[in-house]
Design a protein around this nucleic acid. Sequence first.
DNA 1: GGACTGACACTGG
DNA 2: ACCAGTGCCAGTC
Length: 106
Amino acid sequence: MNDTFERIYDAVCRIPKGKVASYGQIAAMAGNPRMARVVGNALHENPRPGEIPCHRVVNREGRLAPSFAFGGQQFQRLLLLEEGVTFRKDGTVDMERCRWIPGSIE
DNA sequence: GGACTGACACTGG
DNA sequence: ACCAGTGCCAGTC
């Protein structure tokens, strides 16, 4: 149901600025860690742009989505940099540093 | 109700 | 280290 999407959106909105979460993380928060694909779909729908920081959601490697139609991975990289997220030489997010840990609410 | 699809994750080669 | 295949779940046709 849409409830699942709502949970996903809520989880994404909970991501603090300067941190990123993987689809699996969001899925786990939504209720099922295997729902990562649904998370991607939910974000793609993005019925509430501005409230859903989809750019803070990356895959498990910290790599940006290959089909990010938000403005290009480049744009997302800059956005995260502006948020304070650190990147690696590969252009991937430094999950070791910016991976959002539920409970570590600033 | 059945089958295909998808912004993922994991294992194997 | 990289590419390919498989598995999971929910949505849409």
